[in-house]
Design a protein around this nucleic acid. Structure first.
Length: 430
RNA sequence: UCCUCAGUAGCUCAAUUGGCAGAGCAUUCGGCUGUUAACCGAAGGGUUGUAGGUUCGAGUCCUACCUGAGGAGCCA
């Protein structure tokens, strides 16, 4: 009977076949302790010379870390085992040898590990992160699907900048025209809601910023919901509910992984809607009161975000940023046109911005003026302008960075651990 | 692009004021029937990132370059 470690308790007292990899080996003269992992968990396999005989026992003398193997043995409950069970082995077969595995139980540097990311993901900590990532993605999709959102994927090759400010990756392939890798599905989402009402796109996003910080990747995953007939407030409420749903699902199903990561979950337990909300103006006042040198009209730096986050013990929303700070499609506040109907949701504990969005400009003439003012080509945006010509409606949405959310949930030091194969300024391998 | 820091054994690091280049882990060999970062004993393992310079003598000081990290700007 083939068994998997996460469900091994069902087989107590029974003979099972376990297929996996040798994680670690400890040995005495007449007993081997093999920690085996099979992709679902870790378990200690005990091999005594008396039970298996001289030949099998000596075959296990030199098993290297990460040797793939098939063991047959009896499941036994043991209070000494971290998972509650051990396996007393009868037979052991090596599937693939492994000599001089480069990632040892000792600590390694970041660059060394990233060069071996294809192996690093085998370690317990990285497995835990990737499992939680899966649950986050799953929770996002379930949440949006259950609220009548339709997944409508947006293109990766795009003809121009969605947001003029950031840098794009050019691709030379299409005749007479440079294509760029998408940095947002935003504009296409706006077309899609006019067909489907509520939509989201969920895929990789590319930013050619020369960012060298623990908060940036050049390729990252973003979910972007967009709603027709929706205000800034609707977008904030959706964002809150989404974050709450993700945290609840992770706490519900991935306790063990959070423990592996030694994540103190008390701050996650506190997360509930509604989040504290402050205006940009209030945020500036707070920063000044806390002695930060900050001028109205500039964007928050990393330190500013941390100082603001210290005021709250859960995620919080900052809304109504100056229009000059935000993309051309952001709708101005009717009461104060110098402000935009925009929102950022920031994670607590200094993890920074996880959501950015707002209400979109739905008036044709105003949008035309913005495009001119930003020096963008009207021709490129004709299709986007059509959305204002044929039955425009107020609409809102946001983007949420999956790795940023995961970094916060897992309490990671670096964003690059939150994605299987991180792409940063200087990294394209493996 | 700018600022700061780092680069020594396969890995993580040490090396006092410029004076014999070392430890732990990993590997190999030996020992051990309850280990779980196992332990005990032994062995092998080095062009100190690269190229110059100062000096009787450079891992250490100087110059340039390479690579990486953290941060700024920008953003999710």
């Amino acid at each position: 009977m083939t068994a998997y470690i996460d469900k091994i308790g069902q087989f107590e007292g029974q003979e099972v076949t376990l297929r996996g990899w040798l994680h670690k080996r400890r040995s005495s003269g007449k007993i081997h302790f093999l920690t085996v992992r099979d992709g679902t968990g870790f378990i200690q396999v005990v091999m005594s010379k008396a039970a298996v005989g001289e030949e099998t026992f000596h075959r296990a003398d030199h098993l290297g870390q990460e040797t793939s193997l098939i063991v047959e043995g009896t499941v036994r409950a043991d209070p000494r085992a971290p998972g509650g069970y051990e396996i007393d082995v009868d037979t052991l077969n090596v599937v693939g040898e492994s000599r001089d595995y480069p990632i040892t139980p000792k600590e390694h540097g970041v660059d060394y590990l990233l060069d071996r990311r294809h192996l690093w993901i085998r370690s317990p900590r990285q497995q835990a992160i990737l499992r939680i990532r899966h649950v986050v993605v799953d929770a996002v999709r379930d949440f949006l699907n259950s609220r009548s959102f339709t997944l409508a994927d947006t293109p990766i090759f795009t003809p121009a900048a969605c947001e003029g400010t950031t840098t794009l990756f050019p691709v030379q392939y299409f005749d007479n025209e440079t294509a760029y890798l998408a940095q947002s599905g935003q504009l296409y989402n706006e077309a899609n809601i006019m067909a489907l009402g509520r939509v989201y796109c969920f895929g990789p996003t590319f930013r050619a910023e020369k960012s060298k910080t623990r908060r940036h990747l050049t390729e990252f995953w973003m979910v972007e919901p967009e709603m027709a007939f929706a205000t800034l407030n609707d977008a904030i409420e959706l964002g809150e509910a989404l974050v709450v749903a993700i945290i609840a699902r992770v706490l519900e199903t991935r306790r063990q992984e959070l423990e592996t990561l030694e994540r103190d979950t008390t701050s996650l337990e506190r997360v509930q809607a509604p989040f504290p909300r402050i205006t940009y103006d209030e945020a500036v006042e707070t920063l000044k009161a806390k002695g930060q040198p900050f001028k109205w009209g500039s964007d928050f730096g990393g330190t500013d975000e941390t100082v603001l986050a210290e005021q709250f013990d859960q995620p919080f929303a900052v809304h109504r940023f100056p229009s000059a700070l935000k993309a051309f499609y952001m709708k101005p506040d009717p009461d104060r046109p110098e402000l935009s109907l925009s929102v950022d949701i920031l994670a607590p504990e200094g993890y920074g911005e996880i959501i950015g969005g707002g209400e979109r400009l739905d008036d044709l003439d105003e949008l035309l003026a913005r495009i001119k003012k930003h020096g963008l080509s009207q021709k490129t945006f004709e299709w986007y302008l059509d959305l204002r010509r044929y039955g425009t409606v107020p609409h809102s949405g946001f983007g949420m960075g999956i790795e940023r959310v995961l970094t916060w949930i897992c309490g990671l030091e670096h964003l690059r651990e939150a994605i299987p194969y991180p792409r940063t300024l200087n990294r394209l391998y493996p």
